[in-house]
Amino acid sequence: MAEFVRHSGLVVPLDRINVDTDLIIPKQFLKSIQRTGFGVHLFDSLRYLDEGVLGQDCSQRELNSTFPLNEPRYRDASILLSGANFGCGSSREHAAWALLEYGFRCVIAPSFSDIFYNNCVNNGLLPVVLAEAEVAVLMQRAAATPLRLCVDLAARCVSVGEEGATPEHWDFEIDDFRRDCLLRGVDDIALSLEQEEAIRAFEARRLREAPWLYATPASSAAASVPQRS
């Protein structure tokens, strides 16, 4: 995964709850077999007035001027602030890829869906959970005047300004393991493979205790299931 230590940037408020991953990256873009090319289609149906197509030139498309990401004052935003249950719905990791490729390094919300939260961490996009009331205050401020925040993962702290450790700050929680992985940009597959012997031992025991697991491989499974009423 990519490393995340500390990031300062402009906040764009997306004042909406239950932002689902279909909204973040609509289905027609999931036909791509690449990890890239999703940034220009982030929030496609909200950002543009027409229906997007994978691989098109987006520079000529008409923008929805009321969508915050399109407002000139938020053009350089790299921190997305949104409502509860952010990233709900589909497990598509394309949502995290699209946010990163657009230029976001951090999403702040009162809560995230479980799968999306993992997808973010696995890509070095930091999901920060702040209390509902804190997010509401930040939402108002970001809508009123340009708000720049410093997100310090080492200190588990969000503060106003560029440098961190300012009087205006909010602590957030993230478990030690994920924090450590992000700070070091760990290859978590390699980390699991450090337990190779333990996995092999477990697998041998599991197959002894549950010998039916792979007893009939799919290749030899009959094409037809017995009919049932």
């Binding site: 497990s91 990791e93 393991f177 597959i189």
Partner: peptide, 23 residues
């Protein structure tokens, strides 16, 4: 049974395991 993202798909392919905390 639970859904996973593509990074986790790769993780399971490579290790037959997932790293997680209990829900």
């Amino acid at each position: 049974a639970f859904g996973i993202g593509t990074s986790e798909v790769e993780h399971v392919l490579a290790t037959q395991c997932l790293l997680q905390k209990k829900m």
